[in-house]
Simulated assay, not measured.
Amino acid sequence: MHATQPPGTQIDILAVHNLRDLGGWPAGDGRRVRSGLIFHSTDLHAVADAGLEALARLGLRTIVDLRTVAEREPQPDRLPDGATQLYCDVLADARNAAPAMLPMIMADPRNAGELLGDGKAESLFAQGYRDIVSLPSALDAFRRYFLVLADETRRPLLFHCATGKDRTGWAAAATLSLLGVSQDDVFQDYMLTNLQLLPALQPVFDRFAAAGGDPDLLKPVLGVQPAYLEAAFEEMRRTFGSLDAYFEDGLKIESGTLRELRVALTEERTT
């Protein structure tokens, strides 16, 4: 991220949406999150050669794929030169995972109201975010993500799910929270998804409407809402009691490793 750009600035690479650097956010005690080390985006299956070259210029060493097997096998990532991949299937243990339900919804737009209307979509996604925090597969996936993030030889690192907003949204929120970023800034970063992702998904809205669906039903599915992320934090507090306990008791990451992450991924603010 260029020094003059505010945190959360979108990085423009064709066919890679919701791409941004987690760096730049104030991290407390006069520190900020280091830039150029942690990125997130949508999946990388459609990126062209020029986009791969642009990703390679970010220096990426690791791509963490948070998708399910069913999502990633038909649309595998294209990796930039120099990067290796780590699969962390967050929702492997979920029966009906809302963050991975888009293909089912798009298959039957005319009847989507039965699944999504009258607040059902919001309820489904709130439960999905609780699953992202407490499912055994989620705990295992995020443990592996944070351990690879702690390995300086694997950074810079990019993580993603399918649309880079739900599983990716929690990964970003948990990372920033661990590094001392305020909850207001964590939510501000999260909500940038509606500005940086939804415009790129207009063709999806258009196809849904052309097939007889109500495009308004897709807004809580393709976008994000503060209530979703709040549901994740509530689940974290209910299940583990605190952020530190989530990392130490839920993810089984030693306190020394967490301290090392905070030191390695933040720096003193000079202004």
Rank of each mutant, 00 (worst) to 15 (best):
A94P: 05
A94Q: 00
N96G: 06
A100N: 11
M101D: 13
L102V: 15
I105S: 01
M106G: 11
M106Q: 13
D108W: 08
P109G: 11
P109K: 09
R110F: 03
N111S: 15
G113I: 03
G113T: 08
L115G: 02
D118I: 02
D118P: 03
G119F: 13
K120I: 00
A121V: 00
A121S: 05
E122H: 07
S123T: 13
F125R: 01
F125H: 02
A126I: 12
A126S: 13
A126M: 14
Y129W: 14
Y129N: 08
I132P: 03
I132Q: 01
V133M: 04
V133D: 01
S134D: 10
P136M: 12
S137E: 03
S137C: 03
A138R: 06
L139P: 02
L139Q: 15
L139K: 15
A141K: 06
R143Q: 15
R144Q: 14
Y145D: 01
Y145I: 10
Y145P: 01
F146R: 09
F146C: 07
F146H: 10
L147Q: 14
V148E: 14
A150E: 04
D151N: 14
D151S: 10
R155D: 02
R155A: 09
R155M: 08
L158V: 12
C161H: 06
A162L: 09
T163P: 00
G164T: 01
K165I: 00
K165H: 01
R167Q: 05
R167D: 04
T168Q: 02
T168I: 04
W170I: 15
A171W: 09
A173V: 03
A173G: 07
A173Q: 05
A174Y: 07
L176S: 09
L176I: 06
S177W: 04
G180F: 07
S182P: 05
S182F: 07
Q183T: 12
Q183F: 12
F187A: 04
D189H: 10
Y190M: 00
Y190L: 01
T193P: 01
T193L: 00
N194K: 06
N194D: 08
N194H: 03
L195M: 10
L195Q: 15
Q196L: 12
Q196K: 06
L198F: 05
L198R: 13
A200C: 09
Q202I: 11
Q202R: 14
Q202S: 12
P203N: 06
P203E: 11
V204C: 03
F205M: 09
D206Y: 09
D206N: 14
R207M: 13
R207N: 11
F208Q: 05
F208C: 05
A209G: 11
A211M: 10
G212F: 02
G213D: 05
D214N: 15
D214C: 09
P215W: 10
D216L: 12
L217D: 10
K219Y: 10
K219N: 10
P220E: 09
P220Q: 05
V221R: 00
G223P: 07
V224R: 01
V224M: 03
V224G: 05
V224Q: 03
V224E: 03
Q225K: 12
P226T: 04
